[in-house]
Simulated scan of single mutants.
Amino acid sequence: MDHLTKLEEMLDNANAAIKNGHYEKAENILEEMIKIDPNYGKTYNHLGFLYETKFKEYEKGETLYKLCLEKSPMYPAIYYNYSVLLSTLGKWDELKELLDQALNIPGVTKSTIYNEYAIMYEQQGKLDQAIEQFRNAGLNTLDQATLDRAKKSIERCKSKKELF
């Protein structure tokens, strides 16, 4: 088994462990992967996800996401995960910069990125910009559930505008 195949297999095992709620096991697998190849960027994304979502250690998660971006800037998943963390932390300037980058990455689902822009603007009270981005999310999907969610989000923003 070659080096890359072994890492992919370990990553699959770590994902399975996360899915089954065995977070420490996943962490151990991912830490072992870093020892094997510290430049394999996907590892840092998955470890960052673990720290962000399961351990609620946002700073550590952010550090790991940044390492993933540095080592694997073409890996689409990092843009979704890191954008959610930046949104959670209210780091709007960094989030906008990350989303701007994401739109140029092959394999990134544009509707998801537009949705993240929209959430960012809605959380800042920039409702017209949020509506525009929810519209972009809807226009850039072939998935009915995503389209329905975009329409509901637009309606929510319009309702909020009535409160002003």
Score class of each variant (00 low, 15 high):
residue 110 K to L: 09
residue 39 N to G: 15
residue 53 T to H: 14
residue 160 K to C: 06
residue 73 P to D: 13
residue 140 N to L: 05
residue 60 K to E: 04
residue 162 E to H: 15
residue 95 L to R: 04
residue 67 L to E: 12
residue 130 A to F: 02
residue 71 K to I: 06
residue 100 D to R: 12
residue 161 K to E: 11
residue 37 D to Y: 14
residue 75 Y to N: 07
residue 74 M to I: 09
residue 143 D to M: 08
residue 17 A to T: 04
residue 143 D to H: 07
residue 32 E to A: 13
residue 29 I to N: 04
residue 113 I to D: 00
residue 139 L to N: 05
residue 7 L to P: 01
residue 133 Q to Y: 13
residue 142 L to A: 09
residue 28 N to C: 11
residue 56 K to N: 08
residue 50 L to K: 04
residue 6 K to Q: 15
residue 62 E to Q: 10
residue 1 M to C: 12
residue 108 V to F: 04
residue 107 G to W: 12
residue 40 Y to R: 12
residue 147 L to P: 00
residue 17 A to N: 05
residue 94 E to C: 09
residue 117 Y to R: 09
residue 108 V to Y: 03
residue 67 L to Q: 14
residue 150 A to R: 00
residue 55 F to M: 07
residue 137 A to V: 00
residue 68 C to D: 09
residue 150 A to K: 01
residue 56 K to C: 07
residue 115 N to D: 02
residue 139 L to W: 01
residue 29 I to A: 08
residue 83 S to F: 02
residue 122 E to R: 13
residue 141 T to G: 00
residue 120 M to L: 10
residue 90 G to L: 06
residue 86 L to M: 08
residue 163 L to S: 12
residue 93 D to S: 14
residue 38 P to Q: 07
residue 102 A to T: 00
residue 119 I to K: 15
residue 98 L to F: 13
residue 11 L to W: 04
residue 40 Y to P: 05
residue 154 I to P: 06
residue 110 K to Q: 07
residue 135 R to P: 00
residue 57 E to L: 11
residue 61 G to T: 01
residue 42 K to I: 09
residue 103 L to S: 09
residue 14 A to K: 04
residue 69 L to T: 03
residue 156 R to A: 11
residue 60 K to H: 03
residue 8 E to L: 10
residue 156 R to Q: 08
residue 92 W to A: 11
residue 39 N to L: 15
residue 9 E to G: 12
residue 153 S to T: 01
residue 43 T to W: 02
residue 96 K to G: 03
